[in-house]
Design a protein around this nucleic acid. Structure first.
Length: 882
DNA sequence: CGCGTCACG
DNA sequence: ACGTACGTGACGCGT
């Protein structure tokens, strides 16, 4: 059966006009107003979705006079000129339509209406269904059984639908009579006179009686009084008005209906325009639209992997295999695989059910077969309970996209990658499982949907991998990607799978200790406040402190009084309740986040915590940790540090903790090449004291504690681009003094100053800054005209190379440590990374070798202009490794 | 789900 | 003159 032909006709001028006045102003940041284009497009997309047209054309008016002007010079006289902000949007809209390969028409001497009338006439006769969209009711005359006219109401969001029947119901008139109505009542907006004094109501009444303008004129004698006179006096005007209001249905325009076919377009050109116009929310729609029409992919074959032997042969020959494993919810240590999918070429996809994966163990562990995919760490972990160690994880598109553009706002899931590179909408994890779900929860999800989901991932991998390889090469990030990030996938997977042991006895002890302390402190707080309230509610606390106890308000937040630690510090001498509140805050934080939070996450099978390490989160290249976050376990205060007693080594093992000393400052010394800073590190002395002695020109032995802490604050401040204001606040000195410190610092370390200036200038020019290993961070806001954003961008530009290079270095060290432990056949395992610190759980007999290995690999991860220095500590718990 | 708060490097 | 240090994640509250 032939596909139904549906023609969508849009009155371009009418709709863009409506859109302009209906939407608040928008612009693309470069002076181009965009609200009308945006409105037009959202309207058009809605129509495409609702009516699924096979053909589309958009008709425009031209500035040149039309035949109507020639027959009636007053036609459309007095119309206001198009606002400048709207006029500038017409050409860009046409560009978008062209990019979509949507037909558009304009014809000198005729209006958009007439073009629409002509196209709809032919289409109707050829059996099309026609949909006309306009804001102008005149078009109702075109309604018929096969032509539906949509009139926008209230802006552009809603439309009223009229077919022939609809017009009759609404107006008691046929579509043809609608022209007669215009003849009688005229049209103010077009300056069509009609018969003065006859409006919509009278007009309809007359037409019901006499059928048409001619009918009314012929029967003028039957009318009475003033009405009779009006009609007699304006006969010619009525006839002319009807002519003016009649939409032509045979304008001399050359076309064939086939030219109006819709659906075949270059998604990339649309994407580029949407980027230029900053239509971020519309970008994902491109994929939908291209999927909906013409471009649709043929369905890929998904079939059971039967002939394992020949499959293995083929894979070995090809040397690469794309994998996606879907798991059921369950314990990380259990066999949870629901279905595994494989492809060699992206054209045929094979699957195995559940435990059948064991048949591919050798292949998956074959170092000579590259494994490609998306978020392969999950596949690595899913295989571990089966005794399978996925080897040679060589290309992960999620990680590739992360290093290509590590925006903090974008997701690196395959569906957004597909959107960006392929302009195709594929079923996302959320589409498959619903919000929040993390694993396949069979049988909630239809089998075919699951296959489609896996297919989407594998197609995306094959569709994007070559483009990504090019981008990586282009940006000189091959070492970063192939030698650091990709090997790290297995390392992080292994860390996650291994986990860290917790001592539940200690957790319970601490829990009770904290609980008692909280209760005691709370009741003392209530004594002082004279009433019970929720101390954890900043709102209620604010009322007690600043209204009931009338303490001075130090700072306000958007929503009320600020009660943060800084404010409480300033209030502590005003009232004894303050110290209690601070105490309460500290202890509840420790209990809720670190005791209760961690307790919930202890694995019931092995009594360990399997924190997740994420490789695609931070903008700088650092790793992040969640569930729980093992990278912010307290250490700075004594009470907080107690938490570290919870994290222990297994019996017969030790924790070996290795941390880099001043790695970021060393990176700064290296990158800037500053001779004095390098010399400071080469001296092997305490770096902050050494800095103080250099900057303030005092002998090393005479550096006072104050000078040392000033130097330390400046050293750190420099890394973050801190201002004199911030420094003065930190050190409790005047801004002038702080500025003097910074000036002396830069006077001594001239090359650091030059380096920082260079980074900022380069980021301003190129839009990004880079680490030692060419990791990029894009900083578009550095070009912002907003002072605050711009300055924040500058600071980010200065910090990213330092923080990022340090992240690069420890990643190299991690990969090397992991490989050496394996290579030597040691049982010790790398289990944690905390930015500049690695923790290995070592069997007692291996402790010495592990210490040596850690120090060696970490200090020699890279060769900088300064040495790297690692401190080692060993203990039975994390608390002891200090 | 945004906000305020606070834990880490 | 602007506002004032980079990068994270988790919790409880209140809408």
């Amino acid at each position: 059966m032939e596909e139904e032909k549906i023609l969508l006709l849009i009155d371009g001028n009418s709709i863009i006009n409506r859109a302009f006045f209906a939407l608040p102003p928008m612009d693309n940041g470069e002076g181009l107003h965009t609200n009308a284009i945006y409105g037009f497009l959202t309207m058009m997309f809605k129509m495409i979705k609702n009516y699924n047209p096979s053909h589309i054309s958009v008709a425009f008016d031209l500035k040149a006079p039309t035949f109507r002007h020639r027959s009636y010079t007053e036609y459309k006289a007095g119309r206001k000129k198009m606002p400048f902000e709207l006029g500038m949007q017409i050409e860009p809209l046409k560009k978008v339509l062209d990019a979509f390969n949507i037909d558009r028409k304009e014809l000198e001497g005729y209006e958009a209406d007439d073009i629409i009338g002509t196209l709809s006439f032919e289409a109707e006769n050829k059996g099309y269904k026609v949909i006309i969209v306009t804001g102008d009711k005149d078009a109702l005359q075109l309604a018929s059984d096969n032509t539906t006219v949509l009139i926008t109401k209230k802006g552009i969001a809603e439309v009223e639908e009229y077919d022939r029947k609809g017009v009759i119901e609404r107006y008691n008139l046929t579509p043809e009579q609608f022209i007669d109505l215009k003849g009688l009542m005229g049209d103010k907006s077009d300056n069509i006179p009609g018969i003065p004094g006859i409006g919509e109501k009278t007009g309809i009444k007359l037409l019901l009686e006499y059928d048409s303008v001619q009918g009314v004129i012929d029967n003028v004698d039957k009318l009475k009084g003033a009405q009779k006179k009006k009609v007699e006096d304006n006969k010619d005007s009525a006839i002319m008005s009807k002519e003016l209001a009649t939409i032509l249905r045979s304008v001399p325009i050359k076309y064939t209906l086939d030219d109006l076919k819709w659906g075949d377009f270059e998604a990339e050109s649309v994407f580029k325009l949407f980027q230029e116009y900053k239509f971020n929310s519309l970008i994902s729609r491109i994929a939908e639209l291209s999927g909906q029409n013409g471009n649709q992919e043929e369905n890929i074959e998904v079939k059971k992997l039967e002939d394992i032997k020949s499959f293995i042969e083929k894979v070995s020959e090809k040397g690469s295999l794309c994998i996606k494993i879907l798991s059921k919810q369950g314990n990380i240590l259990d066999k949870n695989i629901y279905k595994s999918y494989f492809s060699i070429d992206g054209e045929v996809i094979f699957y195995l059910d559940g435990d059948e994966i064991l048949e591919l163990k050798d292949l998956l562990e074959d170092e000579s077969v590259e494994k490609i995919g998306c978020e392969l760490k999950a596949d690595y972990i899913a295989l571990r309970p089966y005794g399978i160690e996925l080897k040679n994880i060589s290309f992960d598109i999620s990680i590739a996209e992360y290093i290509i553009d590590s925006k903090s706002t974008t997701s690196y899931e395959f569906d957004s990658i597909s959107n960006k590179y392929l302009y195709k909408k594929v079923a996302s994890k959320e589409d498959l499982l619903g919000k929040g779900a993390k694993a396949v929860d069979y049988p909630d999800v239809e089998k075919t949907q699951i296959d489609d989901y896996a297919t989407g991932i594998i197609k995306t991998v094959y569709g994007t991998i070559e483009k990504m390889k090019e981008a990586i090469k282009e940006d000189d990030m091959e070492m970063l990607f192939y030698d650091m990030e990709m090997p790290l996938v297995e390392v992080l997977g292994d860390m996650e799978y291994t986990g860290i042991c917790v001592d539940s006895g200690i957790i319970d002890t601490l829990e009770n200790e904290f609980k008692e302390k909280i209760e005691k402190t709370e009741s003392k707080i209530f004594e002082y406040s004279g009433e019970k309230f929720n101390v954890n509610s900043p709102k209620q606390l604010g009322v007690i402190l600043f209204e009931k106890l009338k303490l001075p308000v130090i700072k306000k937040t958007k929503t009320g009084y600020s009660t943060n630690a800084e404010v409480l510090e300033k209030l502590k001498n005003h009232h004894p309740i303050i110290d209690l509140i601070t105490e309460y805050r500290t202890v509840t934080k420790l209990k809720s986040t670190y005791i209760d939070g961690i307790k919930m996450l202890i694995n019931e099978k092995d009594g360990r915590i399997h924190s997740k390490f994420n490789q695609t989160i931070t903008t700088t290249g650092r790793i992040s940790s969640t569930d729980p976050n093992m990278q912010n376990i307290p250490v700075r205060t004594d009470m907080g540090r107690q938490i570290r007693k919870v994290f222990v080594s297994e019996k017969g093992k030790k924790l070996v903790d290795a941390d880099y000393s001043q790695v970021e400052l060393r990176v700064l010394a290296h990158m800037s090449g500053d001779e004095h800073m390098i010399e400071a590190f080469e001296s092997g002395e305490d770096i902050h004291r050494k800095t103080a002695s250099q900057v303030f020109n005092v002998p090393f032995d005479e550096v006072t504690p104050e000078l040392r802490s000033a130097a330390k604050a400046v050293n750190f401040g420099i890394i973050y681009g801190k201002s004199d204001f911030g420094l003065s606040d930190d050190l409790n000195i005047s801004i002038v003094e702080a500025r003097n410190y910074i000036n002396s610092y830069f006077a001594k370390y001239e090359s650091i100053k030059d380096f920082m200036d260079l980074i900022v200038a380069s980021a301003q020019e190129k839009g990004y800054s880079t680490t030692i290993f060419n990791r990029r961070r894009y900083i578009p806001e550095i070009k912002s005209s907003n002072f605050i954003d711009k300055n924040r961008g500058k600071r980010a530009a200065m910090n990213a190379p330092i923080q990022g290079s340090a992240a690069d270095i420890i990643k190299i060290a991690m990969v090397n440590v992991y490989n050496r432990l394996k290579e030597y056949g040691l049982k010790s395992k790398l289990i944690l990374q905390v930015h500049d610190e690695l923790i290995v759980e070592a069997t007692s007999d291996e402790v010495e070798r592990v210490k040596e290995l850690l120090k060696d690999e970490m200090e020699n991860a890279v060769n900088l202009k300064v040495n790297l220095d690692v401190d080692l500590n060993v203990g039975d718990s994390w608390y002891e490794t200090k």
